[in-house]
């Protein structure tokens, strides 16, 4: 998987305003739909899946969520990284009774179902580093986040 076809500067956004997790997910899914990366079914699929299988990663420090859904809703593979202006509540992966404020959202749409495991592993390997999450919160703009993500994912042999 080539990192730069997956990570695209136009899908790294900062200061996104959303009043809750659903609104953030709808904004992201709608943006991908407008750009023809996903099918119209993607938005509801990602919302439903977040309800059944929440994607907030329970970790120390700045929190990140990794929403995704199955390949059938996808036209072209892409990673969409959003840093919200204000954190919103996401529920914890594996434990929907727990929730916490999340400012970083790393959504992906993957066309190749078989690669989902490898991609998630590469992403989580980057995101489980607390310093990396702090950096993603503090970097000045989308261009800096883009460079950081591409570099980290390359090191992770994605």
């Amino acid at each position: 998987m080539d990192v730069t076809t997956l990570v695209r500067s136009e899908f790294i956004r900062t200061d996104v305003e959303a009043h809750n997790a659903d609104a953030a997910l709808r904004y992201m899914a709608g943006t991908l739909l407008d750009a023809s990366f996903v099918k119209p079914t993607f938005e509801q699929a990602i919302i439903d899946r977040e309800r059944r299988n929440p994607s907030g990663l329970p970790m120390d420090g700045p929190k990140i969520a990794i929403p995704h859904t199955s390949a059938e809703h996808v036209e072209k593979s892409v990673l969409f990284f959003v840093r919200l202006a204000q954190p919103v509540e996401f529920r914890a992966m594996g434990d929907p009774d727990i929730s916490f404020p999340v400012q970083l959202i790393s959504m992906f749409a993957l066309k190749e179902a078989k690669k989902i495991g490898a991609l998630l592993e590469a992403l989580i390997t980057v995101y489980k580093d607390r310093d990396a999450r702090s950096t993603l919160v503090e970097l000045p703009d989308a261009a800096a986040i883009y460079s950081f993500l591409v570099d980290r994912l390359r090191r992770g042999r994605l």
Binding site: L57, A92, M93, G94, D95, I124, K128
Partner: peptide, 24 residues
């Protein structure tokens, strides 16, 4: 061993395994 919430009658030990993904 699961990272997903489970429903229904499951009569074997269930271990929550999100920490194996996050490292915490």
């Amino acid at each position: 061993v699961t990272t997903s919430p489970l429903q229904g009658q499951i009569d074997v030990p269930i271990i929550k395994a999100v920490p194996l993904m996050t490292g915490i």
